[in-house]
Write a protein that binds this DNA or RNA. Structure first.
Lengths: 150, 150
DNA sequence: CGTATTTATCATATTCGCATGATAAAATCA
DNA sequence: TGATTTTATCATGCGAATATGATAAATACG
């Protein structure tokens, strides 16, 4: 469904969101933890930074951080820079021009599917996924937040 | 959504269904009418023939024909030989092992989408699309069925 | 039989997504 | 300043999907 690239982007952003509040996280750490090629991921995160979803900083203590709370970050924003989900390209039969006005044979039935999927990416946030991943209000693994009152 | 190949397959089958009842149709005609590379299409139709969706015959008067009525031909059957829609590969985050038992962060929400799309391809038939393309019960162009009351 | 028609294949390009390795540039810190 | 850390970027490679051109094999027809 998603390109490898968009998939990497999504996984990396999920990772960043899970480590929200900690210091910026270097590409190396993400790449290693998620088994994503380092330089490739670097380029992907750079793209997201250009879109202002992430901030990047260089040198010691640098890395990437979300600039937006996960609850305000729809999956669409993460994925769109790489895969064009909205806007055209969604004719099942590959027509360049396929619309309500001039529909292909599959248009009306397929449009319903496309709309649902687009809505999914538009309405589901990164936070939604993170919460789903922690059904019991589990804290992130290896957390040291429990003692972080300091 | 679909690979170029699967898209060609679907368009070609739609074309064949629209010309159901006429003599077998040579690849050349389909390729030209649909602007699909000839040899490429030939290979695609051959694949569909191996799956017994089409019959092929050589020599003068030869070509391809549907072996099944369009109403009994779900889109899935046309597309599946090229793009694996059902069965695995549908984890949004690219996990090789992602299931209800061991779900990724997106699993539950995404599963719903995947199920709908799979149902679409499983339940929509070639005939459905052809009928949609002829909203007013229009007969096919150049038809000679109008007098077929016999 | 020989010729034309048509599918079946094969060998080869082309293109693009994905990936790797090396280097540059920026920031931090001693 | 110089060494280290980290992002930014470049050059290149690789493989699979897509496409093209040529040839073989089957069928039909005179």
């Amino acid at each position: 469904m998603l390109s490898q690239t968009a998939e990497y982007a999504l996984r990396a952003v999920l990772y960043l969101a899970e480590h929200q509040g900690e210091h910026p996280i270097p590409v190396d750490a993400i790449a290693e933890d998620l088994s994503i090629p380092r330089n490739y991921l670097s380029k992907i995160l750079h793209t997201l930074a250009k879109r202002d979803l992430l901030s990047s900083s260089r040198g010691r203590g640098g890395g990437f951080e979300l600039t937006v709370p996960a609850s305000a970050l729809p999956l669409l924003a993460v994925v769109e820079p790489f895969d064009e989900l909205e806007g055209r390209q969604q004719c099942l039969l590959g027509r360049t021009r396929c619309s309500d006005a001039s529909p292909c044979a599959a248009h009306h039935r397929w449009k319903e599917m496309v709309d649902r999927v687009t809505a999914f990416f538009r309405e589901t946030t990164v936070k939604d996924l993170i919460q789903d991943a922690r059904p019991n209000g589990q804290a992130p693994r290896r957390t040291n937040l429990a003692v972080r009152s300091s």
